[in-house]
Design a protein around this nucleic acid. Structure first.
Lengths: 344, 344
DNA sequence: GTTAGCACTCATCTCTTGAGAGTGCTAATA
DNA sequence: TATTAGCACTCTCAAGAGATGAGTGCTAAC
């Protein structure tokens, strides 16, 4: 158990390091008003904190920097909640002032503002399309042997896929098919669609449609293909401005990682409400060992969820980011729900 | 007019610099088989070439590097065409082996392979949606006061927009409206759509639809909003591996630029067939002064065009990139046309 | 328990030095 | 007359030597 004085010194050390990016020395700390101790006392306490694993030195005679354990403790126990500044609030509200009507526009703009406000990189995961429900099917033939299948979901999202038409299929076949689909599959979750198609609708289709087999193999494949969550970035280059990434090697690693969409999902915790913080190597990705990720989630209506993440150096302004993320995620939820419900 | 010996020396100098990234010295050049002259002779010629503006020195006693004028001359007069290596051809064909059915998939994969093969960054501009023609309209109401408008184009592309419904609009109003749109506006280019709607269709709509004014203002705005060309990147981080961008300042500038989609279009020449090369400051963007951009274009069917660009350092392997871009653009055209025509 | 004082450590900056690569010029050469 | 050898000179780069300064640990005094 840490003494009050140790808590104080740990907190002030982390705060100072977060803002200066320089190892914190005892002399420097003792100059601060909040710390009414002499450098020698502070040195003793710091030595203890180092022994306990909360602080580190970069070399034998340097000041101290927080270890991962130190950040973790800071985040868990020393992070006093804070209200967003009115300046920040103004900026945040500006996103929603425009009354945009497209979900994607709103999310994109949110990503941008978040990265502007924090000076870190933001990642927003769009709502998981697979949880949307079918509202309407439509099939539009393009040529003799290809057509585009369109699925409109209850949230106004539109999925579309090209697929091959078997030869000899008539226009009335297609019309029948669309009718059957619209009768049978409305309200089905997108991720259950392929399953539902095979299980519940195929018999009916088989009855009414010529060339059933070929049609189903190509149409089925089309609606099966993965509907991935869309990833929105804000301020990809922002990270490069922080001193910890002045090492080209690291900078490259990060940029490369962000270009590989499949790696991104590992940064997010499985959809949980609330704010989560992963520090340094708590992110399993090697490139991220000097980064922390703070995630939050937003909702559209009751069910659909998306995620927000801020990526910054481990030496990140946790307090500020947590505050902003908190405000932003609830504002975004409200706005997107408004769009969906059409109550604006 | 340059002598043959000057031409030779310029060519070998540029070639060498492109591959080593080091200033080229006279001694080094004279060791090459192609250059049967002594270092002293080469020094004299190089001095002349420098006077003429084709070569530069990084400092008084360094070897020479090509100037922008030097690269320009090299590209215009010394670039002998080359066949793609069979290795490269194999890789390129692998993109099209899979018989993908989605245009975007093919373009994305092309971007990736191009950047892998060249080790530079590739940018592909999707086909200009505004030149597509309307194939079908559809309107799906979501809530009491919002609906999604869907436009399917002749190339199988699907545009969709949310818009507000005026209160009191009936389902049959919407049905009528969709019918009128489909009767009047099929075949219209997307960029003329708004204009055509106002000019040719509005009278008819006004006649049949209640609450015409409100409906038109929100529907009109929805289909007016810009349909931008989609930008696909391949290997954004590839550029960072070249020594000219080991300067963090420059690296940051480039990454930032690539994140600002609006700047990207300035890199492309207005849609022209053939291959175009812009060297260094010929690109108006300041961040690009150390970069060259090589662009090509591809076609889908007869009309629709998109663009391909490779961004690399001015010290870029022009010969190789031109060759690859040439092959890739025609292969891509063929593949996309196949998808559109459905003849596969 | 706290603090002042002191010896010690290490990173960083600057200055110097030497090696190496390359040039320009002049004089010799084919 | 065009080419080349030779040489003095220039500049970069890397390594090494102090000097400086921020910071520590330890001991003894308060």
């Amino acid at each position: 158990m840490l003494t009050n004085r140790q808590l104080l010194i740990l907190q002030v050390t982390v705060d100072d390091f977060i803002h200066t990016a320089q190892p914190v020395g005892s002399r420097q700390l003792s100059k601060k008003e909040e710390v009414p101790y002499s450098p020698a006392t502070i040195r003793n306490e710091m030595a203890d904190l180092e022994e306990l694993g909360y602080l580190e030195k970069t070399h034998t005679s340097s000041g101290r920097i927080p270890s991962e354990k130190g950040y973790r403790f800071y985040v868990d126990h020393l992070l006093t909640p804070q209200l967003a500044s009115s300046d920040d609030m103004l900026q945040i509200q500006s996103v929603f002032k425009e009354r945009m009507v497209e979900t994607e526009q709103v999310i994109q703009k949110t990503a941008m503002i978040l990265s502007e406000l924090t000076s870190y990189t933001s990642i927003l995961l769009g709502p998981d399309v697979r949880k949307h429900r079918v509202k309407r099917f439509s099939i539009v033939p393009l040529t003799n042997d290809s057509a585009v299948a369109i699925i409109i979901t209850d949230s106004g999202h539109v999925e579309n896929r090209l697929f091959q038409l078997p030869k000899g299929l008539t226009a009335s076949d297609i019309e029948k098919m669309v009718n059957i689909l619209n009768e049978q599959l409305i309200g089905v979750h997108l991720h259950e669609l392929h399953h539902a198609l095979e299980k519940e609708t195929s018999a009916l289709l088989k009855q009414h449609i010529g060339r059933y087999g070929e049609l189903m193999s190509s149409f089925g494949a089309a609606i099966l293909s993965p509907q991935e969550e869309k990833v929105f970035y804000g301020g990809k280059s922002k990270l490069l401005h922080h001193p910890e990434f002045s090492d080209l090697q690291k900078a490259r690693g990060l940029i490369t990682m962000m270009d590989q969409a499949n790696q991104i999902s590992t940064l997010f915790s499985p959809n949980q409400a609330g704010i989560h913080i992963r520090i340094g190597s708590e992110n399993t990705l090697l490139e991220m060992e000097d980064c922390s990720v703070i995630t939050a989630s937003y909702t559209i209506g009751e069910e659909q969820m998306g995620s927000i993440a801020i990526i910054g150096p481990t030496r990140m302004d946790y307090r500020r980011v947590v505050t902003l993320l908190d405000v932003m995620s609830s504002d975004l939820s409200r706005e997107l729900t408004r769009i969906l419900r059409g109550s604006g």
